[in-house]
Every structure is written in C-alpha cells, then in structure tokens.
Design a protein around this nucleic acid. Structure first.
Lengths: 230, 230
DNA sequence: ACCTGAACACCGTTCAAGT
DNA sequence: ACCTGAACACCGTTCAAGT
C-alpha cells in the first residue's frame, strides 16, 4: 500500500459519452466490498466481484490494496464506523460500558461476516482503535487499574466478537439452530449424562438475555480480579 | 452421508503388484485431512490435496463426506480427541475445571487451524460432546445450578476457543505480534489517549498468565451471577 | 455402491504490455 | 503511476460413464 491522498481523485475521463466512471480508490474498493458483504455474506466478497462491480479487472485493485487479506482488514474496520463510543457524561460508567459493548455487538451481528472478519484480522484500524480507546476510558473512570483494564478490554472485545461470530455463523444454515437442538436432544443419559440432564437449558437463548448475562459475568469477574491491588 | 460400517472395509485390490492401497473410508479421509492441517495449516487442508494424498480424485471423497464443510467439522472433532476429561476424583472441582479448560485450550493451540475450525463448525461431534459433558459435570459438582452451568459451559468454551483462534492466527504472520505492538506504540496521546496511556500493558502477554487470569475472571463472574438464586 | 476423469464455475495473484 | 487482459495455479462440486 503506497502513500496516496485519497481526497484528491484524478479527473474523470468519461467513456463513449456515457456517465463518467468513478475513479478507482481504496475507499471505493472498500465500500464496494462491504456492499457485497452485506448482500451476500462473507463468501460473496471476492476481489473479482469487487472488480466487476467497479467495472475493472481484479488486477487493477492491487494498486490500492495489497491483497484480499488487507481488504478484509479494511472492510472490518469500515464496518466498525457504526459503533457508538460517546454517551452523555452523566451516565454512570457501567451503563456506558454495557452500551458500548452492546453497540459493538450489534454492529457485528447485523451484517453477517463482519464478526468473522474481525476475528481473523488484527484490529489496528482507526475504528477498532476508537472502540478500544473508549473502552479503556470507561474502565478507567470505573476505577479499574490500568493493567487490569488492558487485559479486560481485550477480554470484552474478544468475547463479544466471538459470540457475534458464532451467532451469525449459525444464522446462514438452513435450520437456524435446530441442528444443534436436535443433536443434543438425541443424546442418551448413558453417553452424556450431564448434557442429557441440562436438556433445553443448553440451547435456550442465545438471546439478549444471555448476552447481557455474559456481560454481567465478565464485568463482575474483572472487578473481582484486579491485577493490581488497590 | 449414508449409513455405513467403517469397521468392515472392503477387501483390498493391489495394483501392479505394488503395495495394497488402503481402501477409502471416512476415517482415512479425516486422518489424512488432519495430517495436512498439522503440516500446512488451514489453507493446506483442501479436498483435492486429501484426495491426492489418498491416491484418488476429489470426486471420490463425496462417497464418504458431504463436502468440505462436513469434513471440517469431522476434523475439528477428531482433533478434540486429545482433550483430557478425567482426573483423580480427589481433585477439587475448581482445579479440575481449570485443568479441563487448559487441556482444551492446549489442544486448540498446538495445531494451528483447529481453533478456527471449531469456531466455524457447530460442535456436536462425539469429542465436543464429551468435553461439554465433563464441563457440565464439574460445574454441577461445584454447586453451580443447572441453568447457570449450561450458559457458563458455553461461555467457557467459546472464550477459550476464541483466544486460541486469536493466538494461532497471529502466529503464522511474519512478525509474530510486532505488527500490533508497533501500531499501538505509534498511537499519539491526542488521538487515542487511553491506548497511549496503557502502552505496553495492552500487548504484555498473552501468555499463560493472561489465560489463567481470564479463567479466574470467568469463574468468579459465573459464581457471582447465578441465574437461580440458591 | 463405489470410483473415476473430465468438466464447470469459480478463486487470488502475477506479469508483460499498454497509456 | 495507473490500468489492463491474459495467464497461472489453484479451488469445491457435479455428472456421466464405468465397474
């Protein structure tokens, strides 16, 4: 990825008197890729399809993007633009913490594939950093010491990303989660006594209640396990 | 996947007087796929390469495996055979809980790609069920009520899988995690004040200490947040 | 029923050639 | 510097044909 100024696009040369073709740019590529992701999920986001949507050949994209892996990282961060990181100052820190994580989870959940991308790319884009910074800020206000906050922020984000990935993964299957439910209901008490005993409890949720419960667990656990006593 | 008895392989017809070719079977396919995964990571595990290793065409595999997705699920569960689920009865439940999760994490960590597979397939194979059952059993002995244990087991396994996926993902990059470290160190205090302040704390670890801390957090959180008061 | 070769419909990436 | 077409080296899956 060379150094370029995306805010100064080259003049457009219109072809055959038709509408001017928007010039290629990293931003256009990322937006187009994200649109494909929204429409058709993660496997619809290919370099060739992005190129077709932009009326070029796949090779042309390499002037703006290093390859598929970089594009995935850019798209993941692009999606995180929707995550809200500011709230009224009067809100208590814990409320803001939950709101931030819920916003993050919602963004990951609403477009299938984003969570998978976030899970496999290293989150160092501007939006990922903005979310992380906000998270650290809230924990700091909550009196969590810095070493603990650093690990806790990672734990929170990793868990929310993982649960979002898990849930969106399930969604694309034919039977939303009847697959699991059926498999678990067929379990005999001899083979797996505890699974059998747990029964429907295992698959109840995962709804908002379950997500909220998990956040409560993480928060309580973090508050009770400071790395630095204070 | 038709119903077959893999324990009664067809008689082998040796070709050209050479060594007899092992007959195709789901087990042979899964083992071969796992070997490719161990050797070359997740992208080395392709149907075509499995077929080549087994001296057939890719089409032949479809008699035993529904497709790549099913193969991935089978391989993931195959890998989990290594997870230890039994300990001396005298060990306290909490020690056994940590040992189980550490064994699970170790298995996912030692062969890159397994965690990614576990994350994208629904875990209903015999080994996944064995681990889940053991987990539920330990929590039960720890006095955790059933509804809480059901959600907690899911939370534990999801978190360990996610952290294993994250760490093995990082490992295959050129600079193990210097990438992240460098990116975070370049952050200015104006842009991201809290990230800047946290500094090296963010990237310290993730070692065994961090993993253990996370488990402590989860366990404490679960014990403090029962769904059923008791 | 199992196995096969060949074909189909895709991929990401590279590269010489253009402008 | 940017863009292109064509080629390279792969994919998963299907299918008619064999045994």
């Amino acid at each position: 990825m060379a150094t370029r100024n995306p805010f100064q696009p080259k003049p457009v040369t219109s072809r055959r008197g038709g509408p001017a073709k928007a010039p290629l740019s990293q931003e256009a590529i990322v937006k187009s890729a994200f649109a494909l992701l929204v429409e058709g999920g993660i496997e619809a986001m290919t370099l060739r399809k992005v190129a077709t949507a932009l009326e070029t050949g796949a090779a042309s994209l390499y002037a703006y993007v290093d390859g598929l892996e970089e594009l995935e990282a850019l798209v993941a961060d692009h999606a995180l633009a929707e995550v809200r990181t500011t709230w009224p100052k009067k809100d208590p820190w814990r409320k803001r913490l939950v709101a931030l994580l819920e916003s993050y989870g919602k963004v990951l959940m609403q477009t299938p594939g984003v969570a998978q991308l976030a899970l496999r790319t290293i989150a160092i884009g501007p939006n990922a950093l903005r979310v992380l910074d906000a998270l650290l800020g809230i924990l700091d206000e909550g009196g969590v010491d810095r070493p603990t906050a650093a690990w806790a922020a990672d734990l929170f984000m990793l868990y929310v990303t993982a649960i979002a990935a898990e849930q969106t993964e399930r969604k694309k299957r034919p039977a939303p989660l009847g697959h699991v439910t059926r498999a678990l209901s067929l379990v005999t008490p001899e083979q797996y006594p505890h699974i059998h005993a747990a029964g429907a409890e295992l698959t109840s949720g995962p709804g908002p209640t379950r997500f909220t419960w998990a956040l409560d667990v993480l928060i309580a656990g973090v508050l009770g396990n400071p790395r630095k006593k204070g």
